[in-house]
Design a protein around this nucleic acid. Structure first.
Length: 656
DNA sequence: TTAGGACAG
DNA sequence: GGCTGTCCTAA
């Protein structure tokens, strides 16, 4: 796309953008297909170390590391010049930097209730204490909440006129918690808002039906990049060229990202680094480029240059066995080395999906969605034994601690209020190889420490009966398969009965939470023995040079069409525009509806998504259709259903 | 549904 | 290396 040569433009022609009205409109729903998409990856700098600095009030320039037994699990930036990293021991760190603060993580201790505490002597008590990462989980929730609030601020502006309000109503950025210290944010809908406000010429065409007409060029000849780290442009590109809309998009994305980082700093005193780019893969690589406390922008015109410098094993999903196999198959670890390999050659060694994905990803094409997941799907409490333990009594002592740990976390998650509860409990046991046993958690019982312990005990007995159990090197207890509590199910069922098409889906809403239901993958055809299937979560859409969208989330091209009758829920849409009542524009299908029908309409989308999900699963013989696509709009729908107070309240509490 | 593995931070 | 967490697949 960056190879389009502006010099080919006839000198007397009006200069047009390379991007069309359609590309711009697709920003609105965060389509993966638009080249104007913008994703941020934000990564907390040495997160556990920062948590301890905040908790202890440590000056910013003081070296500090977080200790877990004799290991270091996080090292702050001031400590790094001393040669301290996560590979060395606490004793070695002390030698390298006598003044370093070595803060041990909080621990549970046998016989001291189910509460963790920071203890001066925990590192001497590896045999009786169990690590607790709860303080970091709590800080992570606060940070996410702060980020979410700041993003929310970009959605509304007091100076917005009615027209703008109508166009941007209901839009928000989706935020994916990728781990305890990382998030992905799909900034596309926010950028749509900002561009509409700042460039009235775009507003004028928002209603235009000539979607494939190029946009006018941005009314600027130079962008102010002085606050960000920029990746250099590809060789054939020049900073002297006038910016196009994708450059403007990146500039706004960087501005929003900066404001999110600023909010986290000002409210909570955490620094973070960020990458801004057109997709998750590039954003993630970008965030690691300038640390700490900086952000890096990978413009579209810099992508080839940026990627050429990487080993492909640094790209997500290629850091393991698959990356190793590719390295040996093609005799190179470099992205640039793989660029010389033809698609046919890739296909000769890899299955079609992997080959297609790899071919795209090393060229900067990644269509994976930002999945607005915030709820945790499993909780695990684990302990490694060195030396190994050798008796049921010892094992059960740990089961008590695991049960207390998990119970405490479940309480924070809302078990007491019946919002969510796990349905399965699993015990993992490791000798040399690892073995596990799982059983359902009886739905009739109230979950408490005792129940968890007794179930764990049952599992332990099964494992013991199963074969050799001692010595045991590692034991862990995990609860998973969460289901939503009654309040939420009632909400779901309440609207499921209105739509005939959704009736068959009742079980889906009952049996798993929304996130799980929509991230399920259809089975695919047989693969090579090497497990390369996990890669499929990146195959969202067939790769194609054609940027025209082919969303398969349930309202395909009709997203932009006024004639989306076939997707209209019976009796829900007004037959015509009602100009004198407040209108709501659905961010999913751009349909205008009276405000009072907003909830029902969103519920309908939700039900439709469930249905599509089912259909996708049934249609698994078609490898190009990935159900991953169904997840984002659905979850977006969830976020938008704030009017349905009960479910949303539960989610907020759970998430943050 | 169950058990186990890959991958990541 | 220890402790999490997510997603996927074979049976």
């Amino acid at each position: 796309m960056s190879s389009a040569d502006p010099l080919n433009t006839p000198p007397d022609a009006v200069k047009r953008s390379r991007y069309t009205h359609r590309h711009f409109q697709l920003l609105r729903q965060g389509s993966t297909a638009t080249p104007l998409r913008a994703i941020a990856h934000i990564d907390l700098d040495a997160f556990y170390a920062q948590c301890e600095m905040v908790r202890l009030g440590t000056p910013r320039d003081t070296p500090l590391a977080v200790r877990q037994w004799e290991s270091l699990i996080a090292v702050n930036y001031p400590a790094r010049p001393f040669g301290i990293n996560r590979m060395i021991t606490a004793a070695e760190a002390r030698k390298l930097c006598p003044n370093i603060i070595l803060q041990h993580v909080a621990t549970f201790r046998e016989g001291e209730g189910g509460r963790w505490a920071y203890r001066d002597d925990s590192f001497r008590n590896i045999k009786t204490d169990k690590v607790s990462l709860d303080p970091y989980r709590a800080e992570s929730r606060k940070i996410l909440k702060t980020m979410k609030d700041e993003l929310e601020r970009w959605c509304t502006d007091d100076s917005d006129d009615d027209e703008t309000i109508r166009l941007i109503q209901g839009l928000s950025a989706s935020l994916e918690k990728a781990s305890i210290d990382e998030v992905f944010i799909d900034l596309s809908p926010l950028i749509y808002c900002v561009l509409l406000r700042r460039y009235p010429e775009l507003r004028a065409i928002a209603k235009d039906d000539k979607k494939d007409v190029e946009l006018p060029c941005p009314p600027t000849t130079a962008l102010q990049w002085d606050q960000d780290c920029l990746i250099d442009l590809d060789v054939q590109e020049s900073e002297e060229d006038d910016p196009d809309w994708d450059d403007v998009v990146m500039l706004v994305a960087a501005e929003i990202t900066r404001s999110v980082r600023k909010a986290v700093w000002e409210n909570l005193h955490y620094t973070c680094s960020a990458g801004v780019a057109r997709n998750k893969m590039l954003a993630k690589l970008g965030s690691a480029c300038n640390k700490p406390d900086k952000q890096t922008v990978v413009r579209n015109r810099a992508v080839q240059n940026f990627l050429a410098g990487y080993k492909f094993t640094q790209i997500r999903m290629l850091g393991g066995k698959l990356g190793d196999q590719i390295t040996s198959d093609f005799g190179t670890e470099q992205v640039s080395g793989l660029l010389d390999v033809s698609f046919e050659q890739l296909r000769a060694k890899l299955d079609d999906h992997t080959a297609t994905w790899l071919y795209g990803v090393i060229r900067g094409d990644d269509r994976s969605e930002v999945n607005p997941r915030t709820q945790i799907k499993s909780m695990l409490s684990a302990k490694s034994f060195r030396p190994s333990i050798n008796s049921v009594e010892q094992a059960e002592k740990w089961l008590h601690i695991f049960a207390a740990d998990i119970y405490g976390r479940l309480v924070e998650d809302g078990v007491l209020e019946n919002r969510r509860r796990p349905r399965v409990i699993t015990l993992h046991h490791r000798l040399v190889a690892t073995r596990s046993r799982q059983i359902p958690i009886p739905g009739a019982n109230t979950i408490d420490k005792n129940l968890l312990f007794e179930l764990a005990q049952t599992l332990l007995r099964q494992v013991l009966a199963d074969g050799q159990a001692w010595p045991c090197a590692n034991l862990s207890l995990c609860v998973s398969n969460f289901e939503d509590g009654v309040s939420k199910n009632r909400a779901i069922e309440g609207f499921l009965v209105r739509g005939d098409q959704a009736k068959s889906l009742t079980h889906a809403s009952r049996s798993r939470d929304v996130d799980t239901a929509f991230s399920k993958q259809p089975p695919a055809e047989k693969k090579r023995k090497l497990d390369e299937k996990s890669i499929k979560r990146f195959f969202n859409q067939p790769l194609s040079g054609d940027p025209v969208p082919s969303d398969n989330n349930g309202c395909p091209q009709s997203l932009l069409d006024e004639t989306s009758a076939s997707f209209t829920p019976e009796g829900m849409a007004p037959p015509e525009e009602h100009f004198n009542i407040p209108q709501y524009t659905c961010p999913r299908c751009s349909k205008s509806l009276p405000d009072y029908e907003k909830e029902e309409h969103e519920d309908w989308h939700f039900a439709k998504d469930l249905e599509n999900e089912e259909r996708q699963a049934a249609r698994n013989a078609q490898p190009q259709e990935r159900s991953v696509n169904a997840s984002r709009p659905t979850n977006r729908g969830r976020g938008g259903r704030g009017g349905r107070g009960k479910s949303e309240k539960g989610q907020m509490r759970l998430a943050f």
